[in-house]
Protein backbone atom coordinates (compact mmCIF):
# COMPACT_ATOMS: atom_id res chain seq x y z
CA UNK A 1 0.00 0.00 0.00
CA UNK A 2 1.59 3.22 -1.15
CA UNK A 3 0.22 6.33 0.37
CA UNK A 4 1.67 9.80 0.75
CA UNK A 5 1.18 10.92 4.29
CA UNK A 6 0.73 14.61 4.89
CA UNK A 7 -0.86 15.37 8.21
CA UNK A 8 0.04 19.04 7.84
CA UNK A 9 -2.78 19.26 5.32
CA UNK A 10 -5.23 19.44 8.18
CA UNK A 11 -3.88 22.72 9.50
CA UNK A 12 -3.37 24.24 6.05
CA UNK A 13 -5.87 26.69 4.62
CA UNK A 14 -8.48 26.32 3.29
CA UNK A 15 -8.82 22.82 4.76
CA UNK A 16 -8.59 23.84 8.41
CA UNK A 17 -11.29 26.41 7.77
CA UNK A 18 -13.45 23.76 6.10
CA UNK A 19 -13.19 21.46 9.11
CA UNK A 20 -14.04 24.27 11.51
CA UNK A 21 -17.00 25.41 9.42
CA UNK A 22 -18.18 21.81 9.10
CA UNK A 23 -17.96 21.24 12.85
CA UNK A 24 -19.95 24.42 13.44
CA UNK A 25 -22.69 23.31 11.04
CA UNK A 26 -22.82 19.82 12.56
CA UNK A 27 -23.29 21.32 16.03
CA UNK A 28 -25.85 23.85 14.77
CA UNK A 29 -27.98 21.27 12.93
CA UNK A 30 -27.81 18.82 15.82
CA UNK A 31 -28.52 21.51 18.44
CA UNK A 32 -31.48 23.10 16.65
CA UNK A 33 -32.79 19.69 15.59
CA UNK A 34 -32.55 18.53 19.20
CA UNK A 35 -34.59 21.54 20.37
CA UNK A 36 -37.37 20.68 17.89
CA UNK A 37 -37.12 16.99 18.79
CA UNK A 38 -37.48 17.63 22.53
CA UNK A 39 -40.41 20.00 22.11
CA UNK A 40 -42.38 17.86 19.67
CA UNK A 41 -41.27 14.60 21.29
CA UNK A 42 -42.50 15.58 24.75
CA UNK A 43 -45.87 16.74 23.37
CA UNK A 44 -46.35 13.57 21.28
CA UNK A 45 -45.11 11.37 24.13
CA UNK A 46 -47.65 12.90 26.52
CA UNK A 47 -50.26 12.60 23.74
CA UNK A 48 -49.76 8.85 23.72
CA UNK A 49 -50.69 8.57 27.39
CA UNK A 50 -53.77 10.86 27.62
CA UNK A 51 -57.34 9.59 27.94
CA UNK A 52 -58.55 11.46 24.81
CA UNK A 53 -58.76 8.87 22.04
CA UNK A 54 -58.22 11.02 18.90
CA UNK A 55 -55.14 12.64 20.48
CA UNK A 56 -53.80 9.22 21.44
CA UNK A 57 -54.35 7.88 17.93
CA UNK A 58 -52.78 10.92 16.26
CA UNK A 59 -49.72 10.65 18.50
CA UNK A 60 -49.38 6.93 17.74
CA UNK A 61 -49.59 7.62 13.99
CA UNK A 62 -46.94 10.33 14.29
CA UNK A 63 -44.53 7.92 15.98
CA UNK A 64 -45.21 5.11 13.54
CA UNK A 65 -44.73 7.27 10.43
CA UNK A 66 -41.67 9.21 11.54
CA UNK A 67 -39.93 6.19 13.02
CA UNK A 68 -40.46 3.78 10.15
CA UNK A 69 -39.27 5.90 7.22
CA UNK A 70 -35.49 6.27 6.89
CA UNK A 71 -34.17 9.72 7.77
CA UNK A 72 -32.63 9.98 4.29
CA UNK A 73 -36.08 9.54 2.70
CA UNK A 74 -37.55 12.07 5.12
CA UNK A 75 -34.84 14.59 4.19
CA UNK A 76 -35.73 14.17 0.52
CA UNK A 77 -39.44 14.43 1.22
CA UNK A 78 -38.99 17.76 3.00
CA UNK A 79 -36.49 19.06 0.51
CA UNK A 80 -37.76 17.87 -2.87
CA UNK A 81 -41.39 16.91 -2.37
CA UNK A 82 -42.87 19.41 0.09
CA UNK A 83 -42.27 22.54 -2.07
CA UNK A 84 -44.14 20.81 -4.94
CA UNK A 85 -47.15 20.01 -2.81
CA UNK A 86 -47.56 23.50 -1.34
CA UNK A 87 -49.26 26.40 -3.11
CA UNK A 88 -46.85 27.83 -5.70
CA UNK A 89 -45.98 30.96 -3.73
CA UNK A 90 -45.09 28.96 -0.61
CA UNK A 91 -43.02 26.46 -2.54
CA UNK A 92 -41.25 29.32 -4.19
CA UNK A 93 -40.47 30.88 -0.81
CA UNK A 94 -39.11 27.56 0.51
CA UNK A 95 -36.85 27.04 -2.47
CA UNK A 96 -35.71 30.58 -3.25
CA UNK A 97 -36.36 33.15 -0.56
CA UNK A 98 -35.71 31.22 2.63
CA UNK A 99 -32.06 31.81 3.50
CA UNK A 100 -30.06 28.54 3.57
CA UNK A 101 -32.99 26.27 2.64
CA UNK A 102 -30.85 23.10 2.86
CA UNK A 103 -29.78 23.93 6.40
CA UNK A 104 -33.29 24.59 7.71
CA UNK A 105 -34.71 21.58 5.88
CA UNK A 106 -32.08 19.40 7.54
CA UNK A 107 -32.86 20.88 10.97
CA UNK A 108 -36.62 20.29 10.61
CA UNK A 109 -36.23 16.79 9.13
CA UNK A 110 -33.78 15.72 11.84
CA UNK A 111 -35.90 17.30 14.57
CA UNK A 112 -39.19 15.68 13.54
CA UNK A 113 -37.51 12.28 12.97
CA UNK A 114 -35.86 12.34 16.40
CA UNK A 115 -39.09 13.57 18.03
CA UNK A 116 -40.71 10.18 17.32
CA UNK A 117 -37.93 8.41 19.19
CA UNK A 118 -38.08 10.86 22.11
CA UNK A 119 -41.87 10.46 22.25
CA UNK A 120 -41.37 6.74 22.83
CA UNK A 121 -38.94 7.44 25.68
CA UNK A 122 -41.31 9.98 27.25
CA UNK A 123 -44.22 7.56 26.99
CA UNK A 124 -42.33 4.73 28.68
CA UNK A 125 -40.99 7.20 31.25
CA UNK A 126 -44.50 8.34 32.15
CA UNK A 127 -45.59 4.71 32.47
CA UNK A 128 -42.70 3.99 34.83
CA UNK A 129 -43.88 6.62 37.32
CA UNK A 130 -45.98 4.61 39.81
CA UNK A 131 -49.77 5.00 39.54
CA UNK A 132 -49.87 5.86 43.25
CA UNK A 133 -48.15 9.16 42.49
CA UNK A 134 -50.94 10.22 40.15
CA UNK A 135 -53.65 9.01 42.53
CA UNK A 136 -52.08 10.81 45.48
CA UNK A 137 -51.72 14.03 43.48
CA UNK A 138 -55.35 13.90 42.32
CA UNK A 139 -56.52 13.06 45.83
CA UNK A 140 -54.71 16.06 47.25
CA UNK A 141 -56.70 18.29 44.90
CA UNK A 142 -54.36 18.84 41.94
CA UNK A 143 -55.99 19.03 38.53
CA UNK A 144 -54.98 16.51 35.84
CA UNK A 145 -52.67 18.99 34.08
CA UNK A 146 -51.10 20.02 37.39
CA UNK A 147 -50.54 16.37 38.24
CA UNK A 148 -48.80 15.85 34.94
CA UNK A 149 -46.72 19.03 35.14
CA UNK A 150 -45.79 19.02 38.81
CA UNK A 151 -45.68 15.34 39.74
CA UNK A 152 -45.43 12.95 36.79
CA UNK A 153 -43.23 14.78 34.26
CA UNK A 154 -40.45 15.81 36.67
CA UNK A 155 -40.05 12.17 37.71
CA UNK A 156 -40.39 10.98 34.11
CA UNK A 157 -37.54 13.23 32.94
CA UNK A 158 -35.28 12.03 35.70
CA UNK A 159 -36.00 8.42 34.73
CA UNK A 160 -35.36 8.89 31.01
CA UNK A 161 -32.19 10.98 31.32
CA UNK A 162 -29.81 8.13 30.35
CA UNK A 163 -31.70 7.13 27.16
CA UNK A 164 -32.10 10.82 26.28
CA UNK A 165 -28.32 11.19 26.42
CA UNK A 166 -27.92 8.40 23.90
CA UNK A 167 -30.63 9.99 21.72
CA UNK A 168 -28.67 13.25 21.78
CA UNK A 169 -25.53 11.42 20.65
CA UNK A 170 -27.55 9.72 17.89
CA UNK A 171 -28.87 13.11 16.80
CA UNK A 172 -25.34 14.47 16.43
CA UNK A 173 -24.41 11.47 14.28
CA UNK A 174 -27.62 11.70 12.24
CA UNK A 175 -26.92 15.35 11.43
CA UNK A 176 -24.40 13.97 8.92
CA UNK A 177 -27.32 13.08 6.65
CA UNK A 178 -27.70 16.78 5.91
CA UNK A 179 -24.90 16.27 3.38
CA UNK A 180 -27.34 14.40 1.12
CA UNK A 181 -29.19 17.67 0.48
CA UNK A 182 -26.01 19.69 0.12
CA UNK A 183 -25.18 20.98 3.59
CA UNK A 184 -21.40 21.03 4.07
CA UNK A 185 -21.30 19.74 7.61
CA UNK A 186 -18.35 17.91 9.14
CA UNK A 187 -18.59 14.61 7.22
CA UNK A 188 -19.18 16.43 3.93
CA UNK A 189 -16.17 18.67 4.54
CA UNK A 190 -13.90 15.70 5.23
CA UNK A 191 -15.17 14.10 2.03
CA UNK A 192 -14.51 17.33 0.19
CA UNK A 193 -10.94 17.49 1.51
CA UNK A 194 -10.47 13.90 0.36
CA UNK A 195 -11.61 14.55 -3.18
CA UNK A 196 -9.59 17.77 -3.41
CA UNK A 197 -6.31 16.47 -2.04
CA UNK A 198 -6.53 12.63 -2.17
CA UNK A 199 -5.56 12.69 1.50
CA UNK A 200 -8.58 10.71 2.63
CA UNK A 201 -6.81 9.11 5.53
CA UNK A 202 -5.97 12.44 7.17
CA UNK A 203 -9.33 14.00 6.33
CA UNK A 204 -11.44 11.12 7.69
CA UNK A 205 -9.20 10.78 10.74
CA UNK A 206 -9.80 14.45 11.51
CA UNK A 207 -13.57 14.07 11.19
CA UNK A 208 -13.51 10.88 13.30
CA UNK A 209 -11.47 12.60 16.01
CA UNK A 210 -13.83 15.58 16.09
CA UNK A 211 -16.91 13.34 16.37
CA UNK A 212 -15.21 11.37 19.16
CA UNK A 213 -14.35 14.60 20.97
CA UNK A 214 -17.93 15.89 20.66
CA UNK A 215 -19.34 12.57 21.92
CA UNK A 216 -16.94 12.53 24.86
CA UNK A 217 -17.79 16.10 25.84
CA UNK A 218 -21.53 15.43 25.58
CA UNK A 219 -21.17 12.30 27.70
CA UNK A 220 -19.18 14.12 30.38
CA UNK A 221 -21.60 17.05 30.42
CA UNK A 222 -24.61 14.75 30.68
CA UNK A 223 -22.98 12.75 33.46
CA UNK A 224 -22.52 15.94 35.47
CA UNK A 225 -26.08 16.95 34.68
CA UNK A 226 -27.39 13.52 35.68
CA UNK A 227 -25.47 13.45 38.97
CA UNK A 228 -28.02 14.02 41.70
CA UNK A 229 -30.90 14.11 39.21
CA UNK A 230 -31.25 10.53 38.06
CA UNK A 231 -33.83 8.41 39.86
CA UNK A 232 -32.52 5.79 42.28
CA UNK A 233 -34.64 3.06 40.66
CA UNK A 234 -33.42 4.00 37.20
CA UNK A 235 -30.00 2.74 38.23
CA UNK A 236 -31.42 -0.68 38.98
CA UNK A 237 -33.24 -0.98 35.68
CA UNK A 238 -31.92 -3.84 33.56
CA UNK A 239 -29.38 -2.75 30.94
CA UNK A 240 -31.75 -3.88 28.17
CA UNK A 241 -34.15 -1.08 29.06
CA UNK A 242 -31.49 1.51 28.45
CA UNK A 243 -30.87 0.42 24.89
CA UNK A 244 -31.96 2.89 22.31
CA UNK A 245 -34.87 1.32 20.48
Amino acid sequence: MTYNWDWAILVREPFLGWLIAGTGLTLAIAGLGWAIALTVGVIVGIGRTVANRPIRAASAIYVQVFRNIPLLVQMFLWYFVLPELLPTAWGHWLKRDLPAPEFWTAVVALGLFTAARIAEQVRSGIRTVPQGQTQAALASGLRATQTLRLVVLPQCFRIILPPLTSELLTTIKNSSLALTIGVLELTAQSRQIESNTFHGFEAFTAATAIYLAIATLVRLAMRRFEAGRSMPQAKQAPPMALREA
Binding site: L169, K173, N174, S175, S176, L177, L179, T187, S190, R191, E194, G200, F204, A207, T208, Y211, L212, A215, T216
Partner: peptide
Protein backbone atom coordinates in the same frame (compact mmCIF):
# COMPACT_ATOMS: atom_id res chain seq x y z
CA UNK B 1 -19.53 7.74 18.31
CA UNK B 2 -19.23 8.33 14.56
CA UNK B 3 -21.93 8.51 11.88
CA UNK B 4 -22.54 5.57 9.55
CA UNK B 5 -22.09 7.93 6.59
CA UNK B 6 -18.53 8.61 7.72
CA UNK B 7 -17.92 4.87 8.25
CA UNK B 8 -19.11 4.23 4.68
CA UNK B 9 -16.75 6.92 3.36
Amino acid sequence: AIPLVLVLF
